Computed example of a mutant assay.
Amino acid sequence: MNPALIPLVTGTEVTFWVCATMMVLGALGLVLFRKAVYCALSMVVVMVNLAVLYAAMEGPFLFVTQIIVYTGAIMMLFVFVMMLVGIDRPDSTVETIKGQRVLGLIAGVLLAALLIYAIAGAVTVGPAGLAGPNAADGGNVQGLAGLLFGRYIFVFELTAALLITAAVGAMVLAHHQRIHPKAKQRDLADERMRAYAATGEHPGTLPNSGIFATHNSIGAPALLPDGSVAEKSVSKTLVARGATIDPAGLQEGTRRNFEELERVRDADEEDDE
């Protein structure tokens, strides 16, 4: 057999097939997983492997940006918000925005058309590669900076202005005018004592959410000594959005935890004897 006819497999090709397989699996997990936190972590897998592909194609700026900005900041922010609002509560099936299904269908059709166009272009046209950008004066990063702050400076500044406008708009919408002076700590304490004298409401702090430190989400309510749910530990926002609480299941979990605690304590006492 002629050695010249033996196909050579480069490290870039191996990296592509490994990362591409992981990206496809991550994308499938994003669509198929039922829990939102698993979907977010699957998206992290896709973004990390995309960053590795950038590195394999000698794009150091895109590699670092992909890791720091998207994987390290945005996706971790998504995971943090999911853990904060509760990941085990069921999603509400009530539509709060009229026509969102029609808009979602239109957006899905446009996205499918865009994917078909991109895949068709990738199949019919050969890869451009990064030989041209890497051959610029100073290398890849300097060439990219020359494009951003040269040919595409107007689009770059327009995008920056759009992001700043969006941030300012979010702050304006979230801001509310204070109509009462801010209550001080002494005022809050006096109000609690007046409520205790008038209605017998406990003057202490509200019960913390979570059960035996197995949860740190506000979606997991606290339990009273009799095993019932402490209503004040349940977020009013989650209740308004249709979150359901299973007191029987929480009581069963409490009972199992107490039994395990008693078993461990009895075993320790036997060992001491």
Rank of each mutant, 00 (worst) to 15 (best):
L147K: 06
A107L: 06
G121N: 14
A113I: 04
L105Q: 04
P133G: 00
A136D: 07
L148H: 13
A128L: 13
V102Q: 09
G121F: 07
A113E: 04
L147H: 06
A107S: 05
Y117Q: 06
P127I: 03
N134W: 13
V109K: 00
G146R: 12
G138Y: 10
V123A: 13
I106W: 01
G129R: 05
Q100E: 15
L110P: 00
Q100T: 13
G132S: 15
G108L: 11
I116Q: 01
G146C: 06
V125Y: 02
G104T: 09
P127H: 04
Y117G: 03
A131W: 08
G143L: 02
G143F: 00
G126T: 08
Q100G: 14
G150Q: 01
T124Q: 10
G104V: 02
G146E: 15
V125Q: 03
I116G: 09
G143S: 06
A135F: 10
G126E: 07
Q142F: 09
A113T: 06
A112M: 01
L103C: 05
G146I: 05
L103Y: 05
T124S: 13
R101T: 09
L114D: 12
G99P: 07
A128N: 09
I106S: 02
A131I: 12
A136Y: 08
Q142W: 03
I116R: 07
G132D: 13
Q142C: 04
T96G: 04
G108W: 10
G150L: 00
N134E: 15
G126F: 03
G139H: 02
L105S: 05
F149P: 05
A128H: 09
I119C: 05
G126H: 01
F149W: 15
